[in-house]
Design a protein around this nucleic acid. Structure first.
Length: 455
RNA sequence: GGCGAGUUGGCGGAGUGGUGACGCAGCGGAUUGCAAAUCCGUGUACAGGAGUUCGAUUCUCCUACUCGCCUCCA
Protein backbone atom coordinates (compact mmCIF):
# COMPACT_ATOMS: atom_id res chain seq x y z
CA UNK A 1 0.00 0.00 0.00
CA UNK A 2 2.96 2.31 0.30
CA UNK A 3 3.76 2.08 -3.42
CA UNK A 4 7.27 1.04 -2.50
CA UNK A 5 9.06 -2.26 -2.08
CA UNK A 6 8.61 -3.40 1.49
CA UNK A 7 9.76 -6.29 3.62
CA UNK A 8 7.12 -8.97 3.70
CA UNK A 9 5.79 -10.23 7.02
CA UNK A 10 2.74 -12.49 6.83
CA UNK A 11 -0.26 -12.13 9.09
CA UNK A 12 0.11 -15.78 9.98
CA UNK A 13 3.23 -17.68 8.92
CA UNK A 14 1.21 -20.86 9.22
CA UNK A 15 -1.19 -19.65 6.53
CA UNK A 16 0.12 -17.13 4.04
CA UNK A 17 -2.72 -15.99 1.81
CA UNK A 18 -2.35 -14.71 -1.72
CA UNK A 19 -5.00 -13.68 -4.23
CA UNK A 20 -4.55 -13.13 -7.94
CA UNK A 21 -7.12 -11.50 -10.18
CA UNK A 22 -7.90 -14.19 -12.68
CA UNK A 23 -9.22 -14.05 -16.19
CA UNK A 24 -12.55 -13.03 -17.56
CA UNK A 25 -13.48 -16.23 -19.31
CA UNK A 26 -14.74 -15.07 -22.65
CA UNK A 27 -11.88 -16.20 -24.91
CA UNK A 28 -8.46 -17.79 -25.11
CA UNK A 29 -5.88 -16.25 -22.80
CA UNK A 30 -3.55 -13.97 -24.71
CA UNK A 31 0.13 -13.83 -23.93
CA UNK A 32 -0.23 -10.88 -21.58
CA UNK A 33 -2.76 -12.78 -19.51
CA UNK A 34 -0.10 -15.33 -18.75
CA UNK A 35 2.40 -12.97 -17.19
CA UNK A 36 0.76 -12.49 -13.77
CA UNK A 37 0.07 -16.22 -13.68
CA UNK A 38 3.75 -17.03 -14.08
CA UNK A 39 4.78 -14.30 -11.65
CA UNK A 40 2.38 -15.60 -9.03
CA UNK A 41 3.41 -19.15 -9.71
CA UNK A 42 6.98 -18.26 -8.78
CA UNK A 43 5.78 -16.26 -5.79
CA UNK A 44 3.69 -19.23 -4.73
CA UNK A 45 6.65 -21.60 -5.06
CA UNK A 46 8.88 -19.20 -3.14
CA UNK A 47 6.41 -18.71 -0.30
CA UNK A 48 5.93 -22.46 -0.01
CA UNK A 49 9.68 -22.86 0.07
CA UNK A 50 9.98 -20.32 2.88
CA UNK A 51 6.86 -21.03 4.94
CA UNK A 52 6.21 -24.65 4.04
CA UNK A 53 4.16 -26.22 1.30
CA UNK A 54 1.10 -26.58 3.51
CA UNK A 55 1.21 -23.04 4.84
CA UNK A 56 0.23 -21.08 1.76
CA UNK A 57 -3.24 -20.53 0.33
CA UNK A 58 -3.40 -19.36 -3.26
CA UNK A 59 -6.69 -18.08 -4.67
CA UNK A 60 -7.32 -17.09 -8.26
CA UNK A 61 -10.80 -16.29 -9.45
CA UNK A 62 -12.65 -16.79 -12.70
CA UNK A 63 -14.76 -13.86 -13.78
CA UNK A 64 -17.72 -15.49 -15.43
CA UNK A 65 -20.11 -12.57 -15.21
CA UNK A 66 -19.23 -10.21 -18.00
CA UNK A 67 -20.82 -8.53 -20.97
CA UNK A 68 -18.27 -9.96 -23.39
CA UNK A 69 -19.36 -13.46 -22.40
CA UNK A 70 -22.95 -12.41 -22.83
CA UNK A 71 -22.15 -11.02 -26.24
CA UNK A 72 -20.49 -14.25 -27.33
CA UNK A 73 -23.46 -16.28 -26.15
CA UNK A 74 -25.88 -13.98 -27.92
CA UNK A 75 -23.86 -14.21 -31.10
CA UNK A 76 -23.91 -17.99 -30.90
CA UNK A 77 -27.65 -18.05 -30.43
CA UNK A 78 -28.10 -15.81 -33.43
CA UNK A 79 -25.86 -18.13 -35.38
CA UNK A 80 -28.35 -20.88 -34.64
CA UNK A 81 -26.94 -22.50 -31.53
CA UNK A 82 -29.53 -24.31 -29.47
CA UNK A 83 -30.17 -23.91 -25.77
CA UNK A 84 -31.11 -21.06 -23.50
CA UNK A 85 -28.91 -18.04 -23.13
CA UNK A 86 -27.87 -19.22 -19.70
CA UNK A 87 -26.85 -22.57 -21.13
CA UNK A 88 -24.89 -20.93 -23.90
CA UNK A 89 -23.12 -18.70 -21.39
CA UNK A 90 -22.31 -21.66 -19.20
CA UNK A 91 -21.00 -23.58 -22.19
CA UNK A 92 -18.80 -20.66 -23.18
CA UNK A 93 -17.33 -20.22 -19.72
CA UNK A 94 -16.73 -23.95 -19.26
CA UNK A 95 -14.98 -24.13 -22.59
CA UNK A 96 -12.83 -21.10 -21.82
CA UNK A 97 -11.89 -22.33 -18.37
CA UNK A 98 -10.77 -25.65 -19.84
CA UNK A 99 -8.61 -23.80 -22.36
CA UNK A 100 -7.20 -21.61 -19.66
CA UNK A 101 -6.26 -24.58 -17.52
CA UNK A 102 -4.61 -26.35 -20.43
CA UNK A 103 -2.66 -23.27 -21.47
CA UNK A 104 -1.46 -22.35 -17.98
CA UNK A 105 -0.58 -25.97 -17.27
CA UNK A 106 1.60 -25.88 -20.36
CA UNK A 107 3.49 -22.96 -18.83
CA UNK A 108 4.17 -25.06 -15.77
CA UNK A 109 1.95 -22.96 -13.51
CA UNK A 110 0.56 -24.95 -10.61
CA UNK A 111 -3.18 -24.67 -10.10
CA UNK A 112 -4.25 -22.47 -7.19
CA UNK A 113 -5.83 -23.92 -4.09
CA UNK A 114 -9.12 -22.20 -4.86
CA UNK A 115 -10.51 -21.05 -8.17
CA UNK A 116 -13.79 -19.40 -7.26
CA UNK A 117 -16.25 -18.33 -9.92
CA UNK A 118 -18.13 -15.09 -9.61
CA UNK A 119 -21.46 -16.75 -10.37
CA UNK A 120 -21.08 -18.88 -7.25
CA UNK A 121 -20.70 -15.81 -5.04
CA UNK A 122 -23.58 -13.59 -6.13
CA UNK A 123 -25.21 -13.97 -2.72
CA UNK A 124 -22.06 -12.86 -0.96
CA UNK A 125 -21.82 -9.85 -3.24
CA UNK A 126 -25.44 -8.85 -2.58
CA UNK A 127 -24.82 -9.13 1.14
CA UNK A 128 -21.74 -6.98 0.89
CA UNK A 129 -23.50 -4.35 -1.19
CA UNK A 130 -26.39 -4.22 1.26
CA UNK A 131 -23.90 -3.67 4.05
CA UNK A 132 -22.28 -0.82 2.18
CA UNK A 133 -25.65 0.85 1.67
CA UNK A 134 -26.50 0.44 5.35
CA UNK A 135 -23.21 2.06 6.32
CA UNK A 136 -23.77 5.02 4.01
CA UNK A 137 -20.97 4.09 1.59
CA UNK A 138 -23.31 3.23 -1.26
CA UNK A 139 -26.70 4.21 -2.62
CA UNK A 140 -29.35 2.70 -4.87
CA UNK A 141 -30.79 4.65 -7.76
CA UNK A 142 -32.87 3.48 -10.73
CA UNK A 143 -31.96 -0.17 -10.29
CA UNK A 144 -28.26 0.66 -9.94
CA UNK A 145 -26.23 0.62 -6.78
CA UNK A 146 -23.22 2.91 -6.68
CA UNK A 147 -20.30 3.23 -4.36
CA UNK A 148 -19.96 6.70 -2.88
CA UNK A 149 -16.30 7.39 -3.51
CA UNK A 150 -16.27 10.58 -1.46
CA UNK A 151 -17.23 8.54 1.60
CA UNK A 152 -13.84 6.82 1.63
CA UNK A 153 -11.11 9.31 2.44
CA UNK A 154 -8.29 6.93 1.49
CA UNK A 155 -9.53 6.55 -2.07
CA UNK A 156 -6.62 6.87 -4.48
CA UNK A 157 -3.94 5.77 -2.08
CA UNK A 158 -3.14 2.53 -3.83
CA UNK A 159 -2.81 4.03 -7.28
CA UNK A 160 -1.27 7.33 -6.18
CA UNK A 161 -4.05 9.56 -7.40
CA UNK A 162 -6.35 12.05 -5.86
CA UNK A 163 -10.03 12.20 -6.60
CA UNK A 164 -9.73 15.83 -7.56
CA UNK A 165 -6.93 15.15 -10.04
CA UNK A 166 -9.01 12.49 -11.66
CA UNK A 167 -12.00 14.77 -11.95
CA UNK A 168 -9.67 17.23 -13.65
CA UNK A 169 -8.81 14.51 -16.14
CA UNK A 170 -12.54 14.47 -16.89
CA UNK A 171 -12.62 11.09 -18.55
CA UNK A 172 -15.12 9.60 -16.17
CA UNK A 173 -18.52 8.49 -17.28
CA UNK A 174 -21.27 10.89 -16.38
CA UNK A 175 -24.56 9.19 -15.73
CA UNK A 176 -27.83 10.52 -14.36
CA UNK A 177 -27.95 7.96 -11.58
CA UNK A 178 -24.55 9.03 -10.18
CA UNK A 179 -24.26 11.46 -7.31
CA UNK A 180 -20.67 12.10 -8.23
CA UNK A 181 -18.91 11.33 -11.52
CA UNK A 182 -16.30 9.21 -9.73
CA UNK A 183 -18.84 6.86 -8.16
CA UNK A 184 -18.69 3.36 -9.59
CA UNK A 185 -21.23 0.63 -10.08
CA UNK A 186 -21.75 -2.14 -7.56
CA UNK A 187 -24.91 -3.50 -9.12
CA UNK A 188 -26.64 -2.84 -12.40
CA UNK A 189 -29.99 -3.90 -13.82
CA UNK A 190 -30.31 -6.63 -16.44
CA UNK A 191 -32.93 -6.72 -19.11
CA UNK A 192 -34.47 -9.96 -20.37
CA UNK A 193 -31.62 -10.57 -22.79
CA UNK A 194 -29.01 -10.58 -20.08
CA UNK A 195 -28.27 -12.92 -17.22
CA UNK A 196 -29.50 -11.57 -13.92
CA UNK A 197 -30.12 -12.43 -10.31
CA UNK A 198 -32.85 -11.23 -7.99
CA UNK A 199 -31.73 -8.65 -5.51
CA UNK A 200 -33.21 -6.02 -3.21
CA UNK A 201 -32.66 -3.58 -6.09
CA UNK A 202 -34.37 -5.66 -8.72
CA UNK A 203 -33.12 -8.24 -11.17
CA UNK A 204 -29.59 -7.42 -12.16
CA UNK A 205 -25.94 -8.37 -12.10
CA UNK A 206 -22.94 -7.23 -10.12
CA UNK A 207 -20.42 -4.65 -11.26
CA UNK A 208 -17.01 -5.99 -12.03
CA UNK A 209 -15.10 -4.81 -8.97
CA UNK A 210 -17.27 -6.26 -6.24
CA UNK A 211 -16.58 -9.88 -7.11
CA UNK A 212 -12.97 -9.95 -5.95
CA UNK A 213 -13.91 -8.17 -2.74
CA UNK A 214 -16.65 -10.67 -2.01
CA UNK A 215 -14.70 -13.76 -2.96
CA UNK A 216 -11.53 -12.81 -1.15
CA UNK A 217 -13.58 -12.06 1.93
CA UNK A 218 -15.39 -15.38 1.81
CA UNK A 219 -12.23 -17.41 1.19
CA UNK A 220 -9.51 -15.45 2.98
CA UNK A 221 -11.26 -13.13 5.41
CA UNK A 222 -11.19 -9.37 5.86
CA UNK A 223 -7.38 -9.21 5.83
CA UNK A 224 -4.98 -11.22 3.76
CA UNK A 225 -1.38 -10.97 2.69
CA UNK A 226 -0.80 -10.38 -0.99
CA UNK A 227 -3.05 -9.35 -3.84
CA UNK A 228 -1.89 -9.05 -7.40
CA UNK A 229 -2.60 -8.64 -11.07
CA UNK A 230 -1.54 -6.54 -13.98
CA UNK A 231 -0.63 -2.92 -13.33
CA UNK A 232 -3.54 -1.89 -15.49
CA UNK A 233 -5.81 -3.28 -12.82
CA UNK A 234 -4.33 -1.03 -10.18
CA UNK A 235 -6.76 1.64 -11.18
CA UNK A 236 -9.65 1.52 -11.09
CA UNK A 237 -10.21 -2.15 -10.34
CA UNK A 238 -8.02 -2.61 -7.30
CA UNK A 239 -8.56 0.89 -5.99
CA UNK A 240 -12.27 0.15 -6.00
CA UNK A 241 -11.77 -3.20 -4.35
CA UNK A 242 -9.87 -1.53 -1.55
CA UNK A 243 -12.58 1.07 -1.08
CA UNK A 244 -15.40 -1.48 -1.03
CA UNK A 245 -13.67 -3.96 1.19
CA UNK A 246 -12.33 -1.50 3.72
CA UNK A 247 -15.71 0.22 4.01
CA UNK A 248 -17.61 -3.06 4.23
CA UNK A 249 -15.20 -4.56 6.77
CA UNK A 250 -13.75 -1.59 8.65
CA UNK A 251 -11.79 -3.77 11.05
CA UNK A 252 -9.94 -5.49 8.24
CA UNK A 253 -7.09 -4.27 6.09
CA UNK A 254 -8.03 -6.11 2.92
CA UNK A 255 -4.75 -6.85 1.09
CA UNK A 256 -1.63 -5.83 2.97
CA UNK A 257 0.82 -6.10 0.06
CA UNK A 258 0.31 -5.64 -3.65
CA UNK A 259 2.19 -7.21 -6.52
CA UNK A 260 1.42 -5.58 -9.84
CA UNK A 261 3.18 -6.76 -12.94
CA UNK A 262 3.99 -4.38 -15.77
CA UNK A 263 2.58 -4.82 -19.22
CA UNK A 264 3.79 -7.01 -22.02
CA UNK A 265 4.98 -5.81 -25.39
CA UNK A 266 5.69 -7.67 -28.59
CA UNK A 267 8.79 -6.75 -30.57
CA UNK A 268 8.86 -3.40 -28.79
CA UNK A 269 5.24 -2.50 -29.31
CA UNK A 270 2.09 -2.84 -27.32
CA UNK A 271 0.29 -6.04 -28.17
CA UNK A 272 -2.94 -5.09 -29.83
CA UNK A 273 -5.29 -6.47 -32.39
CA UNK A 274 -4.96 -3.34 -34.52
CA UNK A 275 -1.19 -3.70 -34.81
CA UNK A 276 -1.59 -7.30 -35.84
CA UNK A 277 0.78 -8.54 -33.16
CA UNK A 278 -1.89 -9.98 -30.94
CA UNK A 279 -1.60 -13.65 -30.13
CA UNK A 280 -2.62 -16.15 -27.52
CA UNK A 281 -0.59 -18.57 -25.45
CA UNK A 282 -2.12 -21.35 -27.51
CA UNK A 283 -0.94 -19.73 -30.75
CA UNK A 284 2.64 -19.89 -29.52
CA UNK A 285 2.31 -23.44 -28.27
CA UNK A 286 0.84 -24.48 -31.60
CA UNK A 287 3.77 -22.88 -33.40
CA UNK A 288 6.01 -25.21 -31.47
CA UNK A 289 7.27 -22.79 -28.85
CA UNK A 290 7.44 -24.92 -25.71
CA UNK A 291 5.67 -23.64 -22.61
CA UNK A 292 8.92 -23.81 -20.72
CA UNK A 293 10.51 -21.45 -23.22
CA UNK A 294 7.66 -18.97 -22.82
CA UNK A 295 8.08 -19.20 -19.08
CA UNK A 296 11.81 -18.62 -19.29
CA UNK A 297 11.39 -15.54 -21.46
CA UNK A 298 8.87 -14.15 -18.98
CA UNK A 299 11.14 -14.71 -16.01
CA UNK A 300 14.07 -12.99 -17.67
CA UNK A 301 12.36 -9.68 -17.01
CA UNK A 302 11.49 -8.49 -13.53
CA UNK A 303 7.75 -8.40 -13.03
CA UNK A 304 7.75 -4.67 -12.32
CA UNK A 305 9.22 -3.79 -15.70
CA UNK A 306 7.58 -3.89 -19.09
CA UNK A 307 8.41 -7.16 -20.79
CA UNK A 308 9.14 -7.38 -24.48
CA UNK A 309 8.30 -10.68 -26.18
CA UNK A 310 10.57 -11.21 -29.18
CA UNK A 311 11.28 -14.20 -31.37
CA UNK A 312 14.99 -13.71 -30.69
CA UNK A 313 14.47 -14.02 -26.94
CA UNK A 314 12.50 -17.19 -27.45
CA UNK A 315 15.30 -18.59 -29.56
CA UNK A 316 17.95 -17.79 -26.95
CA UNK A 317 15.78 -19.12 -24.16
CA UNK A 318 15.35 -22.37 -26.00
CA UNK A 319 19.09 -22.71 -26.52
CA UNK A 320 19.80 -22.07 -22.84
CA UNK A 321 17.16 -24.53 -21.72
CA UNK A 322 18.47 -27.19 -24.07
CA UNK A 323 21.95 -26.73 -22.68
CA UNK A 324 20.75 -26.94 -19.10
CA UNK A 325 18.47 -29.87 -19.76
CA UNK A 326 21.38 -31.79 -21.25
CA UNK A 327 23.38 -30.92 -18.14
CA UNK A 328 20.80 -32.13 -15.62
CA UNK A 329 19.55 -35.15 -17.55
CA UNK A 330 19.33 -38.10 -15.23
CA UNK A 331 20.60 -36.07 -12.30
CA UNK A 332 18.85 -36.16 -8.95
CA UNK A 333 18.17 -32.63 -7.71
CA UNK A 334 20.17 -31.44 -4.74
CA UNK A 335 18.28 -31.36 -1.44
CA UNK A 336 17.93 -27.60 -1.60
CA UNK A 337 18.18 -24.69 -3.99
CA UNK A 338 21.33 -22.59 -4.21
CA UNK A 339 21.48 -19.73 -1.68
CA UNK A 340 22.27 -17.25 -4.46
CA UNK A 341 19.07 -18.15 -6.29
CA UNK A 342 16.95 -17.98 -3.16
CA UNK A 343 18.52 -14.65 -2.25
CA UNK A 344 17.55 -13.21 -5.62
CA UNK A 345 13.96 -14.41 -5.37
CA UNK A 346 13.55 -13.23 -1.82
CA UNK A 347 14.50 -9.76 -3.06
CA UNK A 348 11.15 -8.75 -4.56
CA UNK A 349 10.88 -11.92 -6.65
CA UNK A 350 13.89 -10.98 -8.75
CA UNK A 351 13.51 -13.74 -11.29
CA UNK A 352 15.99 -12.18 -13.71
CA UNK A 353 18.57 -12.10 -10.94
CA UNK A 354 17.73 -15.70 -10.09
CA UNK A 355 18.34 -16.77 -13.69
CA UNK A 356 21.64 -14.90 -13.61
CA UNK A 357 22.53 -16.84 -10.47
CA UNK A 358 21.54 -20.06 -12.22
CA UNK A 359 24.12 -19.39 -14.92
CA UNK A 360 26.80 -19.21 -12.26
CA UNK A 361 26.07 -22.65 -10.82
CA UNK A 362 28.42 -25.46 -11.68
CA UNK A 363 26.81 -28.39 -9.90
CA UNK A 364 24.04 -29.94 -12.06
CA UNK A 365 22.18 -31.24 -9.02
CA UNK A 366 22.11 -27.79 -7.52
CA UNK A 367 21.08 -26.28 -10.85
CA UNK A 368 18.15 -28.63 -11.08
CA UNK A 369 17.00 -27.99 -7.53
CA UNK A 370 17.36 -24.24 -7.96
CA UNK A 371 15.60 -24.08 -11.31
CA UNK A 372 12.65 -25.88 -9.75
CA UNK A 373 11.96 -22.80 -7.62
CA UNK A 374 11.37 -20.98 -10.89
CA UNK A 375 9.37 -23.85 -12.32
CA UNK A 376 12.12 -24.63 -14.82
CA UNK A 377 13.89 -27.89 -15.76
CA UNK A 378 11.16 -29.90 -14.12
CA UNK A 379 10.70 -33.47 -15.21
CA UNK A 380 7.19 -33.06 -16.52
CA UNK A 381 8.03 -30.21 -18.88
CA UNK A 382 11.10 -31.37 -20.70
CA UNK A 383 9.80 -33.64 -23.41
CA UNK A 384 10.18 -30.92 -26.01
CA UNK A 385 13.95 -30.91 -25.54
CA UNK A 386 14.45 -34.63 -25.96
CA UNK A 387 13.45 -34.97 -29.57
CA UNK A 388 11.53 -38.02 -28.44
CA UNK A 389 9.69 -38.36 -31.72
CA UNK A 390 12.97 -39.56 -33.19
CA UNK A 391 13.52 -43.23 -33.74
CA UNK A 392 16.95 -43.73 -32.17
CA UNK A 393 17.70 -46.81 -34.25
CA UNK A 394 17.24 -44.81 -37.46
CA UNK A 395 19.80 -42.29 -36.32
CA UNK A 396 22.26 -44.88 -35.13
CA UNK A 397 22.00 -46.71 -38.46
CA UNK A 398 22.68 -43.45 -40.22
CA UNK A 399 25.60 -42.62 -38.01
CA UNK A 400 27.12 -46.07 -38.73
CA UNK A 401 26.80 -45.41 -42.45
CA UNK A 402 28.30 -41.99 -42.10
CA UNK A 403 31.17 -43.40 -40.08
CA UNK A 404 31.82 -46.01 -42.76
CA UNK A 405 31.75 -43.41 -45.50
CA UNK A 406 34.13 -41.30 -43.56
CA UNK A 407 36.52 -44.15 -42.92
CA UNK A 408 36.63 -44.78 -46.66
CA UNK A 409 37.13 -41.10 -47.34
CA UNK A 410 40.05 -41.02 -44.97
CA UNK A 411 41.70 -43.56 -47.21
CA UNK A 412 40.75 -42.14 -50.60
CA UNK A 413 40.99 -38.48 -49.56
CA UNK A 414 37.70 -37.93 -51.35
CA UNK A 415 35.39 -36.40 -48.83
CA UNK A 416 32.61 -35.43 -51.24
CA UNK A 417 30.29 -38.36 -50.35
CA UNK A 418 30.75 -37.66 -46.64
CA UNK A 419 29.99 -33.99 -47.06
CA UNK A 420 26.93 -34.74 -49.16
CA UNK A 421 25.49 -36.97 -46.48
CA UNK A 422 26.40 -34.48 -43.81
CA UNK A 423 24.60 -31.72 -45.67
CA UNK A 424 21.50 -33.86 -45.99
CA UNK A 425 21.55 -34.61 -42.29
CA UNK A 426 22.02 -30.95 -41.42
CA UNK A 427 19.12 -30.05 -43.68
CA UNK A 428 16.95 -32.45 -41.71
CA UNK A 429 17.88 -30.67 -38.50
CA UNK A 430 20.33 -33.29 -37.29
CA UNK A 431 23.40 -32.18 -35.43
CA UNK A 432 26.45 -33.94 -36.83
CA UNK A 433 29.45 -34.44 -34.60
CA UNK A 434 32.54 -36.09 -36.00
CA UNK A 435 35.65 -36.58 -34.02
CA UNK A 436 38.50 -39.00 -33.78
CA UNK A 437 36.35 -41.07 -31.49
CA UNK A 438 33.63 -41.51 -34.09
CA UNK A 439 30.42 -40.08 -35.40
CA UNK A 440 27.54 -38.87 -33.29
CA UNK A 441 24.14 -37.77 -34.53
CA UNK A 442 21.69 -35.76 -32.45
CA UNK A 443 18.25 -34.46 -33.29
CA UNK A 444 18.50 -30.69 -33.21
CA UNK A 445 15.92 -27.92 -32.70
CA UNK A 446 14.54 -27.99 -36.24
CA UNK A 447 14.60 -31.76 -36.63
CA UNK A 448 12.33 -33.07 -39.36
CA UNK A 449 12.18 -36.86 -39.58
CA UNK A 450 10.52 -36.80 -42.99
CA UNK A 451 13.67 -35.31 -44.50
CA UNK A 452 15.64 -38.35 -43.43
CA UNK A 453 13.73 -40.54 -45.82
CA UNK A 454 15.79 -41.53 -48.79
CA UNK A 455 19.08 -41.25 -46.98
C1' G B 1 -4.02 17.61 -19.33
C1' G B 2 -3.15 14.29 -14.73
C1' C B 3 -0.35 10.00 -12.76
C1' G B 4 3.42 6.36 -13.13
C1' A B 5 7.50 3.16 -15.08
C1' G B 6 11.86 2.93 -17.71
C1' U B 7 16.72 4.41 -20.42
C1' U B 8 23.52 -0.45 -18.78
C1' G B 9 28.44 -2.97 -24.47
C1' G B 10 25.77 -5.68 -31.25
C1' C B 11 21.37 -8.03 -28.50
C1' G B 12 19.31 -9.75 -23.65
C1' G B 13 20.19 -8.60 -18.95
C1' A B 14 22.57 -8.75 -13.27
C1' G B 15 24.58 -5.59 -9.94
C1' U B 16 27.36 -1.95 -7.20
C1' G B 17 29.40 4.74 -4.09
C1' G B 18 35.78 3.04 -5.46
C1' U B 19 39.84 -3.17 -8.81
C1' G B 20 33.42 -2.78 -15.31
C1' A B 21 28.80 -10.03 -13.73
C1' C B 22 26.66 -13.44 -16.83
C1' G B 23 24.16 -15.38 -21.39
C1' C B 24 23.80 -15.00 -26.80
C1' A B 25 26.13 -13.16 -31.08
C1' G B 26 31.09 -11.51 -32.95
C1' C B 27 36.40 -11.94 -33.24
C1' G B 28 41.26 -14.79 -32.33
C1' G B 29 43.33 -19.61 -31.05
C1' A B 30 43.26 -25.09 -29.93
C1' U B 31 40.87 -29.20 -32.01
C1' U B 32 38.74 -31.12 -36.89
C1' G B 33 39.79 -33.97 -43.66
C1' C B 34 36.11 -29.55 -43.56
C1' A B 35 32.54 -28.35 -40.13
C1' A B 36 29.73 -28.92 -35.71
C1' A B 37 30.32 -29.57 -30.59
C1' U B 38 33.87 -28.56 -26.90
C1' C B 39 37.91 -25.84 -24.60
C1' C B 40 40.99 -21.27 -24.09
C1' G B 41 41.28 -16.10 -24.97
C1' U B 42 38.89 -11.44 -26.38
C1' G B 43 35.19 -6.22 -25.73
C1' U B 44 37.85 1.08 -21.62
C1' A B 45 28.64 -0.21 -21.72
C1' C B 46 26.05 2.25 -17.74
C1' A B 47 20.73 8.46 -22.24
C1' G B 48 22.52 13.92 -21.64
C1' G B 49 23.58 18.01 -18.15
C1' A B 50 24.35 19.92 -13.22
C1' G B 51 25.10 18.84 -8.04
C1' U B 52 26.71 15.95 -3.40
C1' U B 53 31.49 13.21 -2.67
C1' C B 54 38.35 12.10 -2.09
C1' G B 55 35.63 9.25 -5.87
C1' A B 56 29.06 7.94 -9.10
C1' U B 57 26.95 3.78 -13.73
C1' U B 58 25.24 3.41 -8.53
C1' C B 59 22.63 9.27 -4.37
C1' U B 60 19.92 14.33 -5.62
C1' C B 61 17.90 17.72 -9.26
C1' C B 62 16.95 19.07 -14.31
C1' U B 63 16.52 17.77 -19.63
C1' A B 64 15.67 14.35 -23.62
C1' C B 65 13.61 10.03 -25.34
C1' U B 66 10.63 5.43 -24.82
C1' C B 67 6.51 3.06 -22.72
C1' G B 68 2.15 2.50 -19.84
C1' C B 69 -2.31 3.97 -17.07
C1' C B 70 -6.34 7.59 -16.55
C1' U B 71 -12.03 3.87 -21.00
C1' C B 72 -12.98 -3.04 -21.54
C1' C B 73 -8.05 -4.89 -20.76
C1' A B 74 -3.15 -8.92 -17.22
Amino acid sequence: MTRKVEDFAPIDPKDVQIYLCGPTVYDRAHLGNARPVVVFDVLNRLLRHVYGADHVTYVRNFTDVDDKINATALARREAGASGTLEELIAARTEETIAWYHADMDALGAARPDHEPRATAYIGAMIKMIAGLIAAGHAYAKDGHVLFRVRSYSEYGRLSGRSVDDMIAGARVEVAPYKEDPMDFVLWKPSDGELPGWDSPWGRGRPGWHIECSAMSYELLGDSFDIHGGGIDLQFPHHENEVAQSCCAHPTGEFARYWVHNEMLQVEGKKMSKSLGNFFTVRDLLDQGVPGEVIRFVFLQTHYSKPMDWTAEKARQAEATLRKWRALVAGIEPAPSAAPSVIAALVDDVNTAGAIAALHALTDPAELKASAALLGLLEDGMGNWAKGDDVDPSALSALSARLAALRATAMETKDFAPVDAMKQALLAAGVEVRMSKAGVELLAGPGFDATKLEGL
